[in-house]
């Protein structure tokens, strides 16, 4: 008997803790017994290792985006697609939109960003965190944190606030966890 493939649901936002909590809720609300798990940034260990580096030159936004993409490919291979093959739903929190919004907010050409993530399958549905203004005050996902202020690099180099810009772009997505099961 062939198992029906699970669904990929994207939940976009910047705060790791919020993403995990709301991701679990989203999965419970939509998938019930078909709930597979929540996949988060950094599973590959790339960003953890990057933060250990003593290299004085930090990566540019474009380099960081490609690292996000490498991390995402790792998550797809080892977390997301295997669960979906087993017929389970997976919430990717965050997925492509957060990184894309961040890239565009950082001044990277939107078409370049779109082509970069061409390898990532389209999610069944995409949402953003319900409280974008509150989450920006919290600890952002550490991969974004590298650019967003940990070293002061971003402010020094560009003079714009990428987190807020990024959140503004994510507002196009529906907010919050749907209360009813299914779509």
């Amino acid at each position: 008997m062939t198992v029906e493939k699970g669904k990929l649901i994207a939940l976009e936002g910047l705060n790791d803790r919020e993403l995990l909590r709301e991701g679990k809720q989203l999965l419970r609300a939509r998938s019930g017994e078909r709930a597979g798990g929540v996949s988060q940034w950094g599973a590959s260990g790339l960003f953890f290792q990057l933060r250990q580096s003593t290299c004085p030159e930090i990566p540019s936004p474009k380099t960081l985006l490609m690292l996000y993409a490498a991390d995402l490919e790792f998550r797809l291979r080892w977390e997301i697609l295997p669960l979906m093959e087993e017929g389970l739903d997976v919430v990717a929190a965050p997925y492509v939109e957060t990184a894309s919004a961040f890239g565009v907010a950082a001044g990277i050409d939107a078409e370049w960003v779109e082509r970069l993530f061409a390898f990532a399958p389209k999610p069944e549905a995409a949402f953003r965190l319900r409280k974008p203004s509150a989450e920006s005050k919290g600890m952002p996902s550490h991969c974004f944190h590298i650019l967003a202020g940990a070293s002061g690099h971003w402010k020094k180099r560009s003079g714009i606030k990428p987190l807020n810009e990024c959140l503004a772009r994510l507002k196009a997505l529906p907010a919050g966890t749907p209360s009813k099961k299914g779509k």
Binding site: E57, S60, M66, A70, F74, F119
Partner: peptide, 14 residues
Amino acid sequence: ATEFSLMHACDFRH
């Protein structure tokens, strides 16, 4: 293959 490409592109750009 995808990670290989991305990681080398990161190194090159940096």
